[in-house]
Structure formats: C-alpha cells, structure tokens
Nucleic acid binder design. Sequence first.
DNA 1: GGTAGCATATGACAATTGTCACATCTGATA
DNA 2: TATCAGATGTGACAATTGTCATATGCTACC
Lengths: 233, 233
Amino acid sequence: MGSMVLSKELNQIPRFSGLKPTTLKWLTERIHRIKVAKSNFVFSEGDSCDALFIVESGSIKIFKSLESGRELTIDIFYHGDALGEVALIDEGEYPASATALEDSTILKLPKEDYIKLLTFSDATSSVIRDLSLRMRALNRRVRELGSGEVEQRLALVVLTISQRSNPKNTETLVCDLTRQELSSLVGARMETVIRIISKWHKSGIAIKSSSGLHVNKTAIAKLLENKTKDLDL
Amino acid sequence: MGSMVLSKELNQIPRFSGLKPTTLKWLTERIHRIKVAKSNFVFSEGDSCDALFIVESGSIKIFKSLESGRELTIDIFYHGDALGEVALIDEGEYPASATALEDSTILKLPKEDYIKLLTFSDATSSVIRDLSLRMRALNRRVRELGSGEVEQRLALVVLTISQRSNPKNTETLVCDLTRQELSSLVGARMETVIRIISKWHKSGIAIKSSSGLHVNKTAIAKLLENKTKDLDL
DNA sequence: GGTAGCATATGACAATTGTCACATCTGATA
DNA sequence: TATCAGATGTGACAATTGTCATATGCTACC
C-alpha cells in the first residue's frame, strides 16, 4: 500500500522545503506514499480524520453533497496541497469528500505524528504559512462563486484551475477538466457551461481540443472587465 | 484615538484566552482599542497591511469590488474575529476592504508585534487554531454561494449570520442586516432578496419586524431539504 | 408640519439559466 | 468491425433572476 519517501523528495514539496534536515529525517520515517486510482476516494464526508494528506502528483477533488442532491466542488488540489488539515486541527470529521480526478500519489502523515510535528518550532511557521495560502485560495473561491453570471464565474474558475494545474506561466493556458467537473466548480448546469465554452470557441477566446481547453489569458481577462455596468449595489 | 486594554478584557477574546499571563501582559502593552463609526473603513483593498485587527464589539464587513462594478461581501466579522491575518502572514496587501456595519470597537496589534507574537510557543497554537476556524467559516461561505438557487443561498446565509451575530441558541433567530447587505452576501439583486423574504413572511417561515428578520430555524432547515430533486450531476 | 434621503416594496418585461429530450462524437473493448 | 459507455453538443421550453420604473414607508432634520 504505502512506499518509502526520501528527504530529497519531501524537499520538493513547498510545505516541507523550509524544514531542518533533522525534522525532514523525522518525517521520512513517518510519511508513506499512497497511490490513488482515478475516481477512488481518499476520504468521505463524515469520516473521522486520522491523517494529513499531501498531494504529490495528480489531482484530488474536494466536494460536498448538497441537500438538493447536487454536488458542489469545493476545490481541486494539486502538487503540494494539503488535504484535511482543518479537520485534523479541531479534531473533528472531514467536512467534505475527496476523490482522485486522475491516477494520483499522495503522502500520508498519521494524525498523532502531525500533532507532534506542530510542536517543532521550524514546522509551526510552515504550517501557518500554508494555512494562510489555503485561505487565500478559499477567498478566491468565494469571489469566483460570487461573481454574478455563470460566464464570469466560469472565466475565473478556468483561469484559476489552468494556472494551478500547470504553473508554467504562458499566454495561453490549458484546462483539462471535464465539463461536468467545471459545472460542479461554478455551481451551474453542464449544458450552460457547454454553451458558454462553445461561444468562447466560436469567438476565438478559447479553443477546444483533445488535450483540453486552450484559453487566451488576456482575452478572458478582458471578458471580465467588459461586464462593467453602473454600480448601485 | 486608541485606548488602553486590560489583561482581563483580552481574556474575554477566544483567540487570547489560552495564553500565559506573561504573554497576555506583553500584549496589553502593545494592543490598542480603536473606535470605528458606522460605515467607516478599517482598511481598503490594496492598502499595505501594518496591523492585526480583532473585533471587540460591533460588526465589520469585508468586501471586494468586482470587475463588474458590483460589490461582493466576503464575510462579516463579529466579536473575537481577526481581520487581515492572512495578509499579515504573507507580507502582502489587504485583498479586500473592511467597513463597520455599526459603531464598533476593534483591537489593533501592530504588524511587528504580531510577527513577534508568532514566536511565542503558547501563541502559535492559538493562531493555528484560529486560522483553521476561519477556514471552516470560509468553507461554509463557499457552500453558501455554491448552493443553486438564491432562496437556498439566502437561507444558508441567514442561518449563518443570525447565529454568529447572536450566539445565543434559540429556536427563532434574528438577522438584522439590510436587504442590500444580504443581497451582497448571497450574490444576487436586492429585489430578488426582498421577494424571497416577503414570500417567507407570508408563509410564516420568517417574520419581518423593526428589530430585524425573525427566522424559524427548523422551518428554514426544512426548506433546504425540500429541494431534493433526483441527483444526476 | 414639511421635506429630503434611504430602505423597502411591487409590477412588467427582458435576459439568463435550468430542464428535458435527443443527437453526435470518441475511446475502449469484445 | 461492432458495440457500448460516457462525454459533448443542440433545440425547445419553463423557471428563475435581473432590470427598470415607480411607489410606499420611515427617520432625521429644519
């Protein structure tokens, strides 16, 4: 199930890259690598949390089943992102479920070891920095979901996802999510998302291809600004 | 402008209640109380952040101006909540603006003192606990904004706000926000919010009065469940 | 009392989005 | 090749929400 992890590999992960060699060594003895096949669960909403998970490769979707029966994607995590940290800290249950969008590998640190880690002075500062990064991401999610029309929400989501999934900074970004996954991210119906993407394709803002959606960064940004109507609210 | 703060008063604030007496004393020498009159700003989006603010009394609205010209309320903070912590940690600018919804008092801790505080072992754990609480709140906001129709979004928002603004746990909750503020929280137009509240009033789910909106907790919860349609997404 | 300003309505209509039914395309597999 | 499953796409129509105009009610202030 789990395989050994080396100090050198942990150092690749932003969250751990600032740690002292001794702390890193301590971690390698407790962290294990786990493979998660596409569409398998890492954990389910309501499970009591017993470990911290960090995405090493691939992508993990965090989602919540709404009372309405629909499914809302809270966020998608990529290399270096930590899952379930909040639940660990206040000793509760996972507030949402996590599944792999593709074959992925994650690192697992048992709860008691994570709690122990929090007492290491070099680790606490990295935990705090990480939590605040995560909060920035959540703030952005709030803004994405609060932006009026579906087209604007989708534009923001596509920008965020394509940049996070592939941090290379180029003019045309690639988003390889399913239309269903996109619709679950923006809180709209799949048909609506399909229609907007088709419109973008026709107007040249984005290009549909087998490798995903190729998006022109500046064209999308302009699209967001153009919606300027007189402000009253 | 600022007035002295006592250890005893700091102890009332959850964030500081677990600290050692010496740390508390240290804080009283650096924290100042500031009054913020209704609709005045605590800080504006883009300001470089120079302090940590904690709401002592009243309520502070954090909001962001969208490209479309509209205004999205990220969240509303009440007694004990900390403003701008994230911006402090990654040394950036405030990502949103903050204004007082009513005459309020806040505690101000200068940036350099906050950074120093982070090195106290009894403080770091309380900072981490606080950040994770804040993340839970943000996760809830994501869920609120991602819940399909405006009526459901409004129901969740009203539940959250009425419980946070008045933690006494009773069957009927009170929400004293303006219709405009509510609409900015749910990401919809004021007219839409007014129509939904009027509908609630007629059906007895909520009662409009001069002291605010009186909401029947279980009736609202039932309203959320009823929307169960077959799940496909 | 009058008036100015603001929050709160309400109606009519337009725009967006959801819903449902069905067609097409693609990739995997027997 | 044939077939199947799943993703993508399209049309017609219904429901929700936005937009705009306008009206009412309330409070502060002169």
